[in-house]
Amino acid sequence: MKDLSLHILDIVQNSVVAQATIISIGIVVDKKNDYLGITIADNGNGMSPALLQRVMDPFTTTRTTRKVGLGLPLLKQNAERTGGSMDIKSVEGRGTDLMVVLKPSHIDCLPMGDMAGVVAMLICSYPNINFKFSHRVGANEFAISTPELKEALDGLPLNSPSVYPLIKELVSSNLDELQIGELG
């Protein structure tokens, strides 16, 4: 993957396939402590302890179309080579929590990428899933969720083509502000 937002887009597909109805994506940036944390939590099918043990194995997948599953191993590799880590907790029937920690100052740390586009794409592609997204930089936070957007759009479907650019702009202008707040 070229950046972290693409990793997030990829990992969230796992939650979608696990029939989650609520998916929370949280990003925390703490420059002072050289910390970048990404959490993805869902209330999907979860994994059995046996599957959970094998899940980091690139030759583990629940798909039938191919024999490899690289989403999690690739993210783990990218986290670990910055000196960070990745941890998964899962309870069958309850859901899965993924926690990734990276060191942003490390030269191998991937850039964040187009997070606004990823958030908007997920929200607009899966209107029946309740997404909660939050991004915290230092003391400032931006949060948005599917129900809030549905209410503001008042009956206009999230997957109508003209909605995507609006949501992307809403998210990106707020994320830009977080960056500016951090610098100032």
């Binding site: 503001a152 206009l156 109508s160 003209s162 609006l166 949501i167 809403l170 707020n174």
Partner: peptide
């Protein structure tokens, strides 16, 4: 116009609705 808040989104939506 820039969409920065849910209120802005609501406003933009009014202009879109007829088209859709």
């Amino acid at each position: 116009t820039k969409v920065k808040s849910l209120a802005d989104l609501k406003k933009m939506k009014e202009t879109l609705q007829t088209k859709i």
